[in-house]
Structures are given as C-alpha cells and as structure tokens.
Amino acid sequence: MRSVVEMTGVVKRFGAVTALDGLDFEVAAGEVHGFLGPNGSGKSTTLRLLLGLLRSDAGSIRVLGLDPWRDVASLHRRLAYVPGDVALWPNLTGGEVIELLGRLQGGQDRARRDRLLELFELDPTKKARTYSKGNRQKVALVAALATDAELFLLDEPTSGLDPLMEDAFRGCVRELRAQGRTVVLSSHILSEAEALSDRVSIIRSGRVVETGPLEQLRHLTRTSVTADVAAVPPGLDLLPGVHDVVITNHRVNAQVDPAGLTLLMQALTTAGLKSLTSHPPTLEDLFLRHYGEIPAGVPAAAVGSSPGRATGPAPGGRRAGDA
C-alpha cells in the first residue's frame, strides 16, 4: 500500500524540551488513521510538522511524496487541515472565513459547503466573536471538509461538538473514506478514533509506541468481565488467558484474553451465573496499558487474588493490585 505520510526518526525540540523523540509514523493511502495520545504527548507538534508549520531537528518527513517544509504550496493544495485550537478573526462572519480558507485552499465545492453548513447547523452570518467553541470548530470543519483534498489532517476535530454533531462528523469521515481519501484524526477521545479508524498509532512522550489495525491492537488488551455468581469457583486466576481477577463477595471481575473467554465462561456458568456484564476491549484499555501504572506482561496470578478475598473496589483493584 502506498504511504501518504512517512515520518522516520523525527526529532523536534523546543529549547530544552524534546517534544518528539525519534518519532516513526506512517499513514497509508485511503485509510482513516487514528492518532492517539494524551495531552502534551506531541500530537499537535506532529501534525504541524506534517504541514511545515514547524521544522524538524532530525529525521525525514514525506507527505504525499513531498517535503512539507519546502513544497508548502503544492503540498497544501492537496491537503486540508483543521487546527486543534481554532482561532477566528472576531469581526469576520463564519461564512467569510469559510470562503476565505476555501479560496486559499484552491477552491471549495459550493454545494458540498452548503450541505455541510446544514448538516452542522451552523449559521454563517454570525460574527466569529459570537461563536461558541463548538461553532468555531464547525467553521474550521466545514472549510476543510468542503475542499477536494486528498489528505485531511484533523487535530482533535470534535472538541466542543455535541454528540449529535459528533455523529454528523463521523458520517463525513466515512464518506471521505468511501471516496478513497486519507484522513489523519488526532484525538484523545478514544471512542471517536475507535469508531472511525482503520488503523491507529499511539503516541506517548514524543514516540509512537503502538501502531496497527485495531483488530491487531486488540490482542494487546482484554475483555473486561463482571459476573455475579452463586458461589465463586476456586482457581479462576489460574485459567489460561484470565488476568487481574478481583473477587468481592459473590462478584467476579476479570480481564480476559480472547483465548481465555471460553474457559472463563464455562467456569462461571457452572458456578451458577446470576448476572454478567462484559465490555469489549476499548482504546481506554490500550491507553491504560501505555499510560497507566501497569507494567506490561505482569501475570494476573502475581496479583494474588484468591476466592473469597476482597481486594479493593472493582475498577481500581486492577491497578492497585498490580502496583
């Protein structure tokens, strides 16, 4: 697959602070790529480097086969950008800003723009001064989405949008993917990236620490299972693929690898299952693995939870036990 974004060993320093520390990042053509990381991990810095707004100190960057620092105009004609902090001119109307950005971009599809205005319920006649954060975000989104770009760089695009608008935005991204365009979506909102992304990269402290299709990353994480049973069967924590077992009276909490699900379910069913909730692996779990206190690969048995022994409240128990 052709790469649209290639960053290799990119280093970016701001004075004494190293924002990006040998970052490798790659986005394939036609995919929606989730770029995930907590605040301050270097997401916006990476996107600004891709736009040539910042200059890297080391490493190589290619975007659409071009050098973003040198080939600014020809590159930017082919991409659209929504900054993380949308700052608008207070005395211009939303419509004026959208038009201006569109023209600078090299043309907008008028019909699409009108459709987007309607979709996002944005009044373009209002002065930017009077817009809420969400409405300012919509201005930037409409301006970007109405262009005919090959690559969309969206820095936390849904910040400030209400759930309905978030939904509208997701629809737009799916449409872009269906048209074969590439989207890079930085976010710390995990459900958003999860719902949209073909692949994700996780950045932490200026390095990409995981990258791959979601299905591939999911093996790194586990389904969370909470069950109320008549009698807790012994030896749950010894089952292969079952981790972090916490037992509180008749309630069992556990993290389970896909491979361990069958065995656990069998054990719980024979124990007289009263209620069961499970939720699929979320990117929260991925994040917890990368940013939480849990060292990767600590076996659940080491936690030492055993039947009948309460070890703290359910969600915190996992971390507290591991520490």
Partner: peptide, 27 residues
C-alpha cells in the same frame, strides 16, 4: 460579558475575501 453596548449584527453568509491580501485589507 464579552458584549459591547451594541448587539452584533449578522454579516454576509458568503464572504468576498479571496485571499490573504483581501484579508489584510479587511483587517
């Protein structure tokens, strides 16, 4: 908070600013 004494009036829905020069002039 944030308002002047006069309420903001709506402006054009589609701008006529066609580039950075227009914008500089406007500002």
């Amino acid at each position: 908070l944030g308002a002047g004494l006069r309420a903001e009036r709506p402006g054009p829905a589609v701008g006529s600013l066609s580039g950075v020069w227009d914008l500089a002039v406007r500002l």
